[in-house]
Design a protein around this nucleic acid. Structure first.
Length: 499
DNA sequence: TTTTGAGTTGTTCGA
DNA sequence: GTCGAACAACTCAAA
């Protein structure tokens, strides 16, 4: 092994140059670098990204390649099986080592373990780093030594442990190795087929987002400047810009949680007045950590109920018509429809509205949470292997949360409470724009002359509610009650068998 | 081991 | 309109 044998840096969900520990360590090694991204065709059981995520990935890779070019580096993109491609590349380039940032979803962990073993068997050093979490899942434990299943004790234990490392600087310049003649074929980002073409549905995404490290930084600075100080009071208001909207940037690792953590803490120490907002915001970052903690310890979180007693939940007969109305934002409940259309148009949905829309699918339509999780996976730019299933299970009540059985969101009340002027509804459900605020969250109750004046004489313009709230609520409560009876019977059976 | 306190995000009803 | 109480039982985590 010669001193100028290259080091390979394999980028995955960490598409940034700053606070990129794998890249940093590789650069520090003094070796010339080969930096790659591999579009995996799903051969290793890794969940393929949904449509919105693919769009984001295209632009994020493009931005990363440009950032590399600016400091004299190069990003090369491959397509296929990582195991095969990495061995081929390491061999063709006589690489000394491969660096990457750790992943935590089950298929990814298995794939990485196999790749590491294969490369080591080939005599190539492999070094992995934490760049995606503040606290890796195996480091946060309760007094008993077991992993924690309730958020508050989890976050307290995490914050009581060693603090997250300070962010690393981006390399100022890079020594880059030539692509080896016998290396695998490289692909242009534009040829990966990540962008929608027929039809091009990404116009709303382009208008809403700037993927890439610079876009993430800009969004974060804007939030620190204008949103953070209102965060605690306004974070639940979809009509107000008080949340960070960093989730897709975090999903693709264009900004690291450590950068966020230290910048927010620093700001709050400099200005005590924002302390409550800062801790509230960081606890949301903590929920992301908690979701990864759950996924790590319960790898089938995406498919299986975290609480197995929910396996007996009496989901309704799958109704294509109801599901379709939900997906298209035509349920007749304005706050739900606004959320589902925001999702379709922008690839994002405000957190409060995600809960309302998810609760509606599960509890009003009695449709299995996994069906909703799949739709979000396909349509959200921030679709995350841990956050998405953990969030859906939380709403369903099957997750790591002692959900009170009576917590059934009322879409009318939620709308009136969190979108009091109806501005959010009017933005995404324009056919309701002329309706007075008094009726904006319950248009079917508006008097006929009011409806007519607002252009809503026909229910073809905007549908009547597809289910009645009170009826649906009673049905959901009954379903939860049946679950209780089932689990009682089961535990009776168990205690009998012990006797 | 047993006990105790607590658990992100709510709604409805009646005064 | 506003306010407080009621709405199950269970699991988790730590004392």
């Amino acid at each position: 092994m010669t001193a100028d044998a290259p080091a390979i840096v394999w980028f995955r969900d960490d598409l940034r140059l700053a606070d990129q520990p794998a890249l940093h360590a590789a650069a520090e090694s003094g070796r010339p670098l080969i930096c790659i991204y591999i579009l995996d065709d799903g051969t290793d059981g890794v969940r393929p990204p949904g449509g919105a995520s693919r769009w984001w990935l295209h632009h994020s890779l493009t931005a990363l390649a440009e950032s590399f070019a600016r400091i004299g580096g190069r990003l090369d993109v491959l397509r296929g099986r990582p195991l095969v491609l990495l061995r081929q590349l390491a061999s063709a380039s006589s690489a000394a080592s491969v660096f990457w940032t750790r992943r935590y979803a089950p298929a990814e962990r298995e794939a990485d373990a196999a790749i590491k073993a294969a490369l080591q068997a080939d005599g190539v050093e492999v070094r992995s780093f934490n760049g995606q979490l503040l606290f890796e899942p195996w480091t946060v434990k309760g007094k008993s030594g077991d992993f924690l299943k309730v958020f508050t004790p989890f976050w307290r234990a995490a914050l009581n442990g060693p603090p997250p490392a300070l962010p690393l600087p981006a390399p100022k310049s890079l020594k880059t190795a030539k692509w080896p003649a016998k290396g695998p074929a490289r692909v242009d980002i534009g040829d990966l087929g990540l962008l929608p073409s027929k039809p091009d549905w990404a116009g709303g995404l382009r208008a809403a987002w700037t993927p890439g490290e610079a876009g993430a930084r800009q969004r974060f600075d804007y939030f620190l400047d204008s949103g953070l100080r209102r965060y605690a009071s306004d974070r639940d208001r979809p009509d107000v810009e008080a949340t960070s909207r960093l989730s897709p940037h975090l999903r693709f690792g264009e900004i690291s949680p450590r950068q966020i953590f230290h910048a927010v803490r620093h700001l709050s120490e400099a200005d005590g007045a924002t302390g409550r907002d800062a801790e509230k915001f960081l606890s949301e970052v903590g929920w992301r950590e908690f979701s990864y903690n759950l996924l790590f310890h319960a790898p089938d979180l995406t498919r299986r109920n975290f609480q197995t007693r929910f396996d007996a939940f009496p989901w309704g007969e799958p109704s294509a018509k109801l599901l379709d109305a939900w997906r298209r934002g035509r349920t007749g409940y304005p706050i739900v429809d606004a959320g589902m259309r925001e999702l379709w148009i922008t690839g994002f949905m405000h957190n409060r509205v995600r809960m309302i829309a998810a609760s509606f699918l599960i509890k009003h339509l009695m449709i299995d949470w996994r069906t909703g999780e799949e739709w979000f996976w396909d349509t959200l730019c921030d679709a995350d292997p841990a956050n998405n299933p953990a969030g859906w299970q939380w709403v369903a009540g099957s997750g790591a949360d002692a959900a009170p059985y009576f917590r059934v969101f009322n879409p009318i009340l939620q709308g009136e409470k969190f979108d009091p002027d109806g501005a959010y509804v009017r933005t995404y459900v324009p056919e309701l724009a002329k309706l007075p605020t008094k009726w904006i969250h319950k248009p079917w109750i508006a008097p006929p002359d009011v409806r007519k004046a607002a252009g809503l004489a026909s229910s073809k313009t905007y549908p009547s509610p597809i289910v009645d709230h009170d009826t649906a609520r009673q049905r959901a409560l009954a379903a939860f009650a049946s679950l209780r009876e089932t689990s009682t019977t089961e535990s009776d059976a168990r205690s009998h068998s012990r006797v």
